[in-house]
Nucleic acid binder design. Sequence first.
DNA 1: CCTGTATTGTCCGGTGGAAC
DNA 2: GTTCCACCGGACAATACAGG
Length: 539
Amino acid sequence: MSLLKQKFLFLDCQTTGMRPPTGALLELGWGVASAEEQGAVMSRIVKLPEGHWLPGKVKEITGIRESMLEEGVAEEELLGLLDIACVSSEAAPALVHYAQFERAFLDDFFVRQGRELPFPFICTYRIARKLYPNVPSRNIRGILGYLGFPFREIKRAEAHVRATMEVWSELAKELAVLGIHDLAALNAWLEEKPKPKKKGAAPVKFEYRVDRMKRLELPPRPGVYRMISKSGDILYVGKATSLKDRVNSYFRGKKGRDPKKLEMMAQVWDLEVTECGSPLEAALLETDEIKRLDPPYNISLKAGRRELHFYNRDFTATSAEQSAEFCQGPHRSSNGIEQVRQLLGEVNEAQAKRVLYEPIAEETYASGYALFAAKNFPELAAPTARQLIALGMHSLRRLKKAAEVEEEAVEELMEEEAAATEEAEAAEAAESAEPLEELAVDLSPEEVAEKLDRVLLRAALDYRRAKGLTRMLNAEVRWQGAEGERVLRFRNGKMNADEPDGSEFPWRALGIQDYDRMSVLISEVQKGDYRVERYGGRA
DNA sequence: CCTGTATTGTCCGGTGGAAC
DNA sequence: GTTCCACCGGACAATACAGG
């Protein structure tokens, strides 16, 4: 029978681990189809055996949560369903992407049911590797995009099965071109030895679907670039000082590159760029474009579920909107001020974890806290958040004065602060709620006190940052461009907008995109030779 | 993150042809 | 006959990459 018409049983397993003894089958997806005719796809969540649970990482990867386990079927029931599928596939082989993974689980499954595996496996990964040896990434997403299918999220078993069907529909056509027309020929071809292996020959490069000249002819000027799939999905948006250099850097080299980026590059068929007058404008356009398009391979600057936070005067409560009561901000959900607020409760192990994100023995933390208190507020038994932040501002000013001698100190601190915030946000976003193995960190009380001092500084930096961001909402940025002076005007956070000045609470109608825009503006302005003035001010 | 595997890289002794 | 060295295959280690 022709390979194009040959029916196969397509399969995919989601599991709680890597291999049967440690991991258990969590979900099975299957469907019967041929290259020319896709069939229906089914899937079932499987009851986990005693002693198995859903690891946080697996929840994150699959999107399966505990509540869904309730609808899990028993293995006997699954066996029945699978037998029905085998009948309708006429006992054809199973087609699976990276079959060695599912084989282990299904083998285990059938053995435990007192049966033998009723079908052989054919691996689409192996076929793809042979057909396209130089694709940057051969995982299911990479191959799917390389073959020109639209980008989509692939998490659950059903989506994996559909993806495998689509991949096969293309691979089968390619095989036909090579004269492989039936199962026997396919198996023989897969058995063939790799190649004679030429010595000292070309060092094999990745192959991309993007037209080479298109990227080589990009202008060496600032701008925003977009990576695009064959079907027009925007996969990634980035900015560049030189579009030509930046974009081409994605296509160079083969070793040690981020696998996520390689997966993306396998799927890129086209590029689009927007030239900008300056790196500053490119950065501003980038942040807005990421919000507008929500590209799957961008990580930072995405809106996601991020929200702005405003505090009341005493920092005792927060609101998502700025108002007379909640005037202080904007801040992100995890920030230095939040850490300081955590410092107000009882001094115990739980507080240590909330403030320092590390498990620390209760006694160590308590004596560290005592040191910190004696140094910073000897007269106060229970300082308020406001007082603590004021203390932080005080230290910050002192540090800055010292920094006139030692340039780097403050910058280092700023960088550290940014990293800490990112880390906290990442932890929040991951929401994997995995009860991490809690190894108490071995710190001295002095080190704890020092860390608490840093918390105050971080809060002060956040406080100052909010002021700085607010100042940028209505500002003019001037710099010397190649063709004379250039200026960008911001009003209520929008670039070159012509609206009346905002209210006393300028963030009231603004959101995370405005916050990011102002952040980008500040960080770009710090990098170059820019002058910032209040909007409408005269030089 | 982690785990299993396949591929690639490296080191080694052995071989055989060319030069003396 | 001896020496040199390019080249090969086998054994083992390192690395890359798929999966959840």
